[in-house]
């Protein structure tokens, strides 16, 4: 299958290993990614927290660009971008007056109902399917005990995100079990990590992350799996000494189980280096 692709800013920077692992896994699964031509930033929290119109117009430019391509779907791996693109789409589809105004600002027409915005968990689980994933596994992740952390922006608000069960999501858990990990049940899957307060209100984020890490340890986890660069940055770098756990993007673990060589480049990019855990389980 071929889809349009919106990497977003962090996949070129602090979430480099997410960008690379999304590409590697897509290649392995036969998903062809066609990057949106000359895309720009979605505006993230900072736009919607301060200027509503800007928070619709910035993603609108990207959606309109995506609509010029042949693909009917766009894959958005970053949960924050996914949320902003979905939210802008919701407003553009439901508010005629706003849509006209935004079209005038961006200088092109937005075509209604012409593009589906999807995150890679949804795409891989629903369109590729667990069976095909299992068939690709050469190294089951035996001994890895993750809790799956979905956070806020993939799921909420449900009428906009329209993805998985919003109080007890399970798709990531199922995917990780399929590749041989022993996923631990956990009641903090959808709690907030503090998001962009990591820079402006660091101590608040420290406390929120410590709570998540404590509860993950209580659940018997030896690592956490995420699908968002903001969650990754916080969980991987804001836990207090002694509470840290290795944190993985789910695509890194898929790649590892598929035996993709590129995965060896990613571990050193983590704040908490997962190599010793993976070595002790003879996964690398």
């Amino acid at each position: 299958m071929k889809v349009a692709y919106y990497p977003g800013c962090s996949l070129h920077g602090t979430a480099k290993e997410y960008g690379q692992s999304v590409k590697a896994v897509s290649r392995a699964l036969g998903i062809e990614l066609n990057e949106i031509e000359d895309w720009s930033c979605c505006g993230a929290t900072s736009a919607h927290a301060t200027n509503f119109k800007l928070s619709v117009a910035l993603p609108a430019r990207d959606l309109i660009k995506a609509q010029t391509g042949a693909e009917k779907e766009v894959m958005v791996p970053c949960a924050a971008c996914f949320n902003r693109l979905k939210s802008a789409q919701h407003h553009l589809e439901h508010d005629e007056v706003l849509r006209k105004e935004v079209e005038a600002i961006v200088g092109s027409e937005y075509k209604k109902e012409s593009l589906e915005i999807r995150n890679p968990i949804d795409l891989i689980y629903n369109d590729i399917g667990l069976e095909e994933l299992v068939a690709k596994v050469v190294k089951p992740l035996t001994g890895l005990k993750p809790v799956s952390y979905y956070g806020c922006l993939l799921l909420r608000p449900p009428k906009i995100c329209n993805f998985d069960n919003y109080e007890n999501p399970v798709l990531l858990d199922k995917m990780m079990s399929a590749i041989g990990a022993e996923v631990k049940p956990w009641s903090y899957k959808t709690d907030c990590c503090g998001g962009s307060f990591t820079i402006s209100k660091t101590s608040i984020v420290n406390n929120m992350v410590d709570k998540l890490m404590r509860s993950a340890r209580e659940a018997g986890a030896n690592c956490v799996v995420v699908a968002c660069p903001v969650c990754m940055a916080n969980l991987d770098m804001r836990a207090s000494a002694g509470l840290e756990l290795p944190v993985f993007y789910f695509t890194e673990l898929l790649a590892l189980s598929f035996g993709l060589k590129e995965s060896s480049d990613w571990w050193k990019l983590h704040g908490v280096d997962p190599s010793s855990l993976l070595k002790s389980l003879q996964l690398i």
Partner: peptide, 21 residues
């Protein structure tokens, strides 16, 4: 601080179209 963070973030977009961290 929260507002200063948002302003810095948006200035960075205005500068390059994408965030340079």
């Amino acid at each position: 601080n929260v507002v200063q963070f948002h302003e810095s973030f948006l200035s960075s977009i205005k500068f390059g179209g994408r965030i340079n961290e």
